[in-house]
Simulated assay, not measured.
Amino acid sequence: MAVAEFHHDAQDKLRHACTLVAQWYRDGRRVWIHCDSEPLAARLDQMLWVFEPLAFVPHVRDGHRLSEATPVRIGHDPAAAPADAIVLNMAQSVPAGFEQREHIVEIVSRDPADRDAARARFMRYRERGFDMQTRKAEA
């Protein structure tokens, strides 16, 4: 059964995203970070290089010549995501083709507008039969 995992009450969504991605990388998982804007993709790209001084998370933006060989990719088109990748959805809507994904993760901040958007995504995943999981964000 496909899983939609919501991390709620994040103080800093980007930092929490980087922490999760670093853990998944250490666990040998492939990750697709779905962004709905170029500025957000650029911020995540930069933050993955510097968020932990001793951490190394190999990542590229989708379309890079090494994207097929890199375990963490950042992009706008979820159809380009590897089939076995965890999808970290940083967009305000569900990614296109989400029904074919096995594991989608959402991070929800304390901002009321962000919570409302997340509730709508939560309902959409639940309507499609995803196993819904929630946990408190640590960052």
Rank of each mutant, 00 (worst) to 15 (best):
T134M: 14
L20H: 13
R128M: 13
E5H: 15
A81Y: 06
R124K: 11
A96R: 09
Q133L: 13
A117Y: 00
M132G: 06
A91F: 04
Q133K: 14
V108H: 02
V108P: 02
A91D: 10
A118H: 01
D36P: 07
P112D: 09
P112N: 06
V105H: 10
F122V: 00
M1R: 14
A80R: 15
F6S: 05
R101V: 03
E102N: 15
L14I: 13
N89V: 04
L54C: 00
F98C: 06
S109Y: 09
D77C: 09
V108I: 02
H7Q: 10
I86W: 07
A91P: 08
R15M: 13
E106F: 02
A41T: 09
A22Q: 14
L40H: 04
A81R: 11
E138Q: 04
D12P: 09
L40G: 09
Q100F: 01
H59K: 08
Y125F: 12
A118T: 00
L14V: 14
D36F: 06
E106D: 14
I33S: 00
V94M: 08
P58K: 05
A55I: 07
H7R: 14
E138S: 08
Q11N: 03
A41Y: 06
R128D: 14
A120F: 00
M1E: 09
D62P: 01
A10D: 15
Q23T: 10
L44R: 00
L44I: 10
W49K: 02
Q100A: 15
F98L: 06
I86N: 01
A10W: 13
V50W: 09
I33L: 08
R101K: 10
P58E: 04
E127L: 02
G63S: 03
M1V: 12
R26F: 01
V57P: 15
A4F: 01
I33C: 03
R29Y: 04
H34R: 03
D116I: 02
T19G: 12
E127W: 00
D131Q: 09
R73L: 11
R30A: 12
V31H: 11
K136N: 04
W49F: 13
S67Q: 15
Q100N: 13
Q46F: 07
S37L: 02
V94F: 02
R65K: 05
A85L: 12
H59M: 09
P112G: 05
A79F: 00
H103V: 03
Q23V: 03
A81S: 12
L20M: 15
G97Q: 10
W49G: 01
H59T: 14
C18P: 11
R73C: 15
A22P: 14
F51C: 00
Q133C: 10
A83D: 15
A2V: 04
S37T: 13
A113K: 05
D27P: 00
L20Y: 15
E99L: 08
A113C: 00
A96L: 07
L14A: 11
F98I: 07
H103C: 13
R119H: 03
D84R: 11
V105R: 12
